[in-house]
Design a protein around this nucleic acid. Structure first.
Lengths: 196, 196, 196, 196
DNA sequence: CATGAATGAGTTTTCATTCAT
DNA sequence: TATGAATGAAAACTCATTCAT
């Protein structure tokens, strides 16, 4: 294998391991040694490739984001209408992969860390704006720019809230997250149209 | 000051300092020395009174919870109707005190920690059930038990989501959280009644 | 109770507690708080009466020594012959009180500490010389000064060895300590006489 | 030096340093920093190799035990008779290396610690049984099983006693330990034979 | 006389990071 | 490329000791 290839393989293994470790632990308070061990390499190598723990974490979030983006693009590509695009976004957000306990826990941990880490904050801001813009682009044709923005904000909040509840494994969750969000959107759209 | 009171004063100062420190830091990764300094005492004294960092944190969460509860009871006492109870709950959740950046950040940090700490998890579970039950008790008279539970779940998720967004200081937030939640509830209730 | 009496009662309670604590722990690595609690008082009071942990320990050894001395004097008073004096010394050394697990463990702990503590060393030296002199005074009439000193040294070593073995609760101890020491002395005396 | 050897070299340096430190201090109450400094490394490295202070101490006792065992095996190999084996054991016990102040102080410290540490206790139990069995194997041909066990016990006690007296540097020691023990054994054997 | 309040100094342990091989 | 060696810095926790009441 060429040197550049090895580097990519190692980097991928390390970011995967980092996400896994953070997800398992529920916070970014994991050791480089733990992450490296999950990737089957030494902690020193992780430093060699990423420079610091911080940089490895940032790269990991970027990977998470890229993954989500890929899924979203694929789902949106199949949508045949603005309303379909909304459903596609929701489906992806709660898909088995994105809504797995580990991934959700990792998201939450990164969110928390972002409060102190501008780089991370900026990165997660991208995700937030992308979600918002996707929601708005589905809603706009149906309710107009202004209402679309308002509904998107409530919807995004609900999605985030469902994520945090998933992460905490709150007992008593009965309703399907997709149903909950779809219902919110549907009801909001209907309400706007009734009074428009 | 009476000798017997000192303990309570110190304990209060320390839990306040802990919440403040956790809020400022955005995570429970704060040192006893930092907390103790904020309370104006030595780290050794914090151990003297609480035994361990863990116990101090638990006591702090308990204090946060008790504070929220007091506010909620006061607000509910003034409500004159089921619908008024719902608004009261929402008002309290987003009141200046409960929705301050620091308090919100502390809540989030405790939530994250709860993933690994059963004691904390149990404590926060109390909050979750109390919120749910308060919401249901306001909704039930209007939409019945079944729909009340469903709406309460979406509402609680939205509240949690708005909290996490507040903690992250996500740019671009424009809508008022209270408006968002009130609107969600109002629309949901109306929708249920229309098709009932 | 007069003030001086209270002081003596407290001091006695504290040295007793110290011996008990050290015996239970098997080393002088016990806390003032532990000792004070056993004596039913505060750690501050222990300092008030003894000035320092070191001083409390020294006083405790002194008490142990005084106790042993009282027992020894009583036993020697009943002895009717030099040989009887030897047996009396041995009896006392292995009496239920002096050879109890706790007392033995306390002796050992103090011995160990004496390596670094000249004051303690001096105190324990008194015990060593007293034992030696008592043994010699019993042996001298039977084997003369020179042999008495030699036999006393071996005997004292054996007694110390039996103490340390008791402290460690070495499995497999079968023989009675008194028998072992009596036999050693008897055989040594006989041997000297045969070849004298 | 080969990379693979470094670990063993460091471990050896650390256990040596630990024995030295414990011997100098007369108790196990020495800091990892002190031990590490004596070995010329950082305290962190000591943890790296041994995991905990406890484990380092256990390894050190094991080293002490192994060393004694090697010496004993060598000495026993040169013995030409049961009686010679007894003398060999005694010689080793009081050899310059094994009976040095530091080594003796270390033994005593470990013995004391063993009261609270089952792992250490088990380890030291091995030494006790080995000494006993070596003594019995030398005595048995001369006095039979039963008497051999009895004499071995007294002898072992005397050896232990001479160790503790050495550790304490008791003033007034005049007799040679080897002489004392040899004499005890000789006299006991003679006594048994006379009355057998 | 007696105690709880309070702390400074110290100890083990953890961990990101650097470096030589 | 890859790793084990090595460490400094930090953090929780302990405890003898002092002091005000």
């Amino acid at each position: 294998m060429r040197r550049a290839d090895i580097e990519n393989v190692r980097k991928k293994a390390l970011t995967d391991a980092a996400i896994q470790a953070v997800g398992a632990q529920g916070s970014m308070d994991v050791t480089m040694a733990d992450i490296a061990a999950r990737a089957g390499v030494s902690a020193a190598l992780a430093h060699h490739y990423f420079g610091s723990k911080q940089d490895l974490m940032t790269a990991s979030v970027r990977a998470l984001l890229a993954d989500l983006r890929t899924d979203a693009i694929a789902a949106l590509g199949n949508a045949r209408s603005p309303r379909g695009r909304l459903s596609a976004i929701i489906q992806v957000s709660f898909s088995a992969k994105q809504f797995s306990s580990e991934t959700v826990a990792a998201w939450l941990a990164f969110y928390v860390e972002a409060q102190r880490n501008p780089g991370l904050s900026r990165l997660l801001g991208i995700y937030g704006r992308r979600l918002h813009s996707n929601l708005v682009s589905g809603l706009r044709p149906m309710v107009g720019e202004w209402e679309a923005a308002r509904i998107a904000e409530g919807t995004a909040a609900m999605i985030d809230g469902l994520y945090i509840r998933k992460a905490l494994g709150s007992a008593g969750r009965r309703a399907d997250p997709v149903q909950l969000v779809e219902d919110h959107i549907e009801t909001q759209i209907a309400s706007v149209r009734r009074f428009a």
